[in-house]
């Protein structure tokens, strides 16, 4: 099927097999930050933005992205590096496998919620599973990152 979409701002016209999940398609276009962590829509690792909304790219059928804009971590390099710095400072990752999906969702939250409380942060990020840490390092890092942004950083 014919598809037209924008990946990180770049227009792509393609002929695709429709039952490819968006996740596989993005990887085939070089977006290797987008990873599969589960088979069941549970882990949040495959998070990308579909028209600015965080969504699970393992779940979205590819043709739903027709005429839409997709953003992956590759398109948010400087934001990702900045937030990644806060995570590193707090020793928040161990294996780091959960990181790409987590960064995508924190950045989405920072745009969507104004001055979120700790409960709101936890609730927004609950769909991002991490199998190594206890989430407290991430929470510290996210709070410091949001504070930094509030101060105009």
């Amino acid at each position: 099927m014919e598809i037209k979409l924008w990946i990180n701002g770049k227009l792509i016209n393609d002929d695709v097999s429709p039952d490819t999940p968006l996740l596989e398609y993005l990887r085939s276009k070089g977006c290797y930050s987008v990873k599969r962590g589960c088979e069941t829509s549970n882990c949040g690792l495959c998070t990308v933005w579909l028209e600015d909304k965080p969504t699970l790219s393992c779940t979205v059928p590819l043709m739903r992205a027709n005429n839409k804009h997709i953003t992956t971590l590759e398109g948010l390099k400087s934001d990702a590096e900045e937030l990644g710095g806060f995570l590193a400072d707090e020793g928040a990752d161990q294996c780091g496998f959960c990181n790409p999906g987590f960064l995508m969702n924190v950045l989405a939250m920072a745009k969507e919620l104004e001055d979120p409380t700790e409960d709101e942060i936890n609730e927004y990020l609950t769909g991002n599973l991490c199998r190594c840490t206890g989430y407290t390092g991430q929470l510290r890092a996210v709070k410091k990152y949001l504070e930094h942004k509030r101060k105009g950083g």
Binding site: T55, V60, N105, G127
Partner: peptide, 13 residues
């Protein structure tokens, strides 16, 4: 609905 998986999932289903 707020306990159903996560924001990204609820943006899909």
């Amino acid at each position: 609905v707020r306990h159903i998986v996560g924001v990204q999932f609820r943006n899909c289903v």
